[in-house]
């Protein structure tokens, strides 16, 4: 039911045109996911406040319990920044005309998303199956990639749009189930009897990227605050000392699981602890290839909306100045400047 309430809230937010950005206080949102739990730490341990004070602003971080809802609220203008994946950044705010910048590339899924099946051993065994997944999500994208890599098409399977909250238990209850999902649901689904993980995101590494996305026209003070707080958190997290263990335990508790579970999820998440690594990843040639896959998938599945005639309708800009799609309508920007500044300790 909270989804309906969310829709109503969204309409209420929609009635007010986007707030002016010449301001000192900012609203930022995130939702639960392994790669974003550090935001809870940055907020509650005062790192975010410290960096905001340094930049002369105030930032309020809000946890939105529903992932899609959080992006919708960002797109509607309620938040100036929001945590989301590369695919959703393209298909929701960017296609919706909100010029957005991938400020922080925090991590990519390296096994955190996967396809599980009962009574089967390979992707080929999905043929003719009913597959549970959240349609149009990164799960759908992963499935599409897995099918393509195995010479199959989406027509070979039946998709059952399933709420992520219930997907693991529904999958486990079925005798010949198949599902695509992400952690922590994936861990739960894998724990069942006769369940085989037939594909996961480590087979297409670097394609499902977890970002902190900010409005491109947001002031530098906000961008610097977010980058500063994030990389200070990363430093604590990767420290291999007591502070690091405490931070992980804190995040595990926030995520609603045990430390062991959280550590298992961190293992299948390629965290960019060092800002320099993240900056290099964004500058690298692979990102362009990934975004080409992602935008083709999105366009072919109608995620560009009805007005779009081709996948070039929306432009995606890269740090080298190159673009994919319409260079005159760039709405999603990958930018390494602030990550580089963080790496050079110049924030």
């Amino acid at each position: 039911m909270h989804k309906l309430i969310g829709l109503i809230a969204l309409l209420a937010a929609a009635a007010l045109p986007g707030a002016a950005l010449a301001q000192k206080s900012f609203d930022v949102c995130w939702s639960h996911y392994t790669g974003w739990e550090p935001w809870a730490y940055a907020d509650e341990k005062g790192l975010l406040k410290k960096w905001a004070a340094k930049n002369g602003i105030s930032v309020k971080l809000t946890l939105v319990n529903d992932y899609v809802e959080s992006i919708n609220l960002y797109t509607a203008g309620k938040y100036q920044a929001c945590a989301m994946t590369n695919m959703d950044a393209l298909t929701i705010p960017a296609v919706g005309g909100i010029d957005s910048t991938a400020l922080i590339v925090g991590s990519f899924s390296n096994g955190n998303d996967g396809i599980v099946i009962k009574k089967g051993a390979a992707v080929k065994d999905l043929k003719g199956r009913k597959i549970k997944l959240v349609q149009f999500s990164v799960s759908h994208y992963l499935l599409s990639r897995a099918l393509a890599l195995n010479g199959m098409r989406e027509r070979d399977v039946t998709l059952v749009n399933t709420s992520d909250a219930d997907i693991a238990s529904l999958f486990l209850a079925e005798r010949d189930g198949a599902a695509v999902t992400w952690n922590p649901m994936l861990l739960k689904a894998r724990s069942g009897k006769d369940v085989t993980l037939i594909f996961d995101s480590s087979k297409t590494p670097g394609e499902i990227i977890d970002l902190m996305v900010v409005k491109s026209n947001a002031p530098d003070t906000l961008k610097k605050t977010l980058a500063g707080a994030w990389y200070e958190t990363m430093a604590v997290m990767s420290g291999q000392d007591k502070a690091s263990r405490d931070a992980l335990a804190f995040m595990a508790q926030k995520a609603g699981g045990t430390l062991a579970e959280f550590e298992a999820q961190i293992k299948t998440t390629r965290m960019f602890y060092k800002a320099g690594e993240a900056a290099a990843f964004v500058r690298g040639p692979e990102l362009r290839k990934t975004m080409e896959y992602v935008r083709s998938f999105s366009f072919e599945h109608g995620l560009y909306g009805q007005g779009a005639k081709s996948k070039d309708a929306v432009g995606i800009a890269f740090p080298d100045g190159g673009t994919l799609g319409n260079a005159k309508n760039v709405k999603l920007r990958f930018d390494a400047v602030l990550m580089q500044a963080a790496a050079d300790a110049k924030l």
Partner: peptide
């Protein structure tokens, strides 16, 4: 304000 707006 934004011709690509999808909300309304």
């Amino acid at each position: 304000e934004n011709p690509d707006d999808k909300i309304l």
